Simulated assay, not measured.
Amino acid sequence: MTEERTQEGRVLDAGALRALAHPLRVRLFDILSQYGPQTASSLAELTGESTGATSYHLRALARHDLIREVAGRGTARERWWERPAGSVTLTNPEMQNTPSGRAVMEVVQSETLALRHQQLMHFVAHGWDEPEEWREASVITTATARLTPAQSAELIARVQALIDETVKRYRNQTGDDVRAVTMRADVFPLPIEKGSA
């Protein structure tokens, strides 16, 4: 599972994955990824946690270079935090070989996908309230094809290239009509069903 592949990707080491394997840390990381720099106070407000809790977890993420303090912004009392640009792979091939490593990666991925699912379901329930231009510029789609592993890998590369190009071009765009937009691409084999050809 990879997000924001705009630069050479970072495969998280065991320490970084373990640091991220906490529901609030995943949420803080996700907010910083999607909405940009925040303070511990603004993150506390967004998450319903105390400022002390968000500060503690931000420092834990920063120790593993998952986030960093925004240079030249804020004060000693109010520090601004950001997630560096570039892709982050939420799996580590070396950790896949042990039950404890797989468990850590499963926590990180499960929490990340739970947040993404909440966002999707919020849009399903409230997307009708969006202005017409945003309703027409949104899509939820699913398709199924019968592919070989090589064909699946080719599809993933083509979709990822389009997403990478879009993120690179518009990552820091500002303006009256500009909003954060999530782009999702799920490509994986379905379970083999009895009697399927």
Rank of each mutant, 00 (worst) to 15 (best):
G15M: 01
R5I: 07
H57F: 14
T54I: 14
R169S: 15
E133S: 11
K168Y: 05
G86F: 01
E45K: 14
T112Q: 03
A40N: 12
S33P: 00
S152W: 01
F123L: 05
L90I: 01
E165Q: 12
T144R: 12
W134E: 07
G48K: 08
A161Y: 01
T182H: 06
D129S: 10
L113E: 09
V108D: 06
T2L: 15
D186T: 12
E78L: 04
T112V: 02
Y170W: 07
E111P: 02
S100E: 15
G36S: 08
S196G: 05
V178L: 06
S138Y: 07
P131D: 09
T174N: 06
G36V: 01
A62C: 02
V178A: 10
Q38W: 03
Q173W: 01
P191F: 10
L90T: 04
E165A: 14
P99Y: 10
F188V: 04
A71F: 02
A60R: 14
L46E: 15
T174E: 12
R77Y: 03
E78S: 07
Q96D: 08
D186M: 11
T51Q: 11
H126L: 03
A76N: 00
R25A: 13
P84H: 02
G9A: 09
L61N: 04
A125D: 12
Q119A: 13
E193G: 14
A60D: 08
R63C: 04
S152K: 06
A161V: 09
E106Y: 05
M95Q: 08
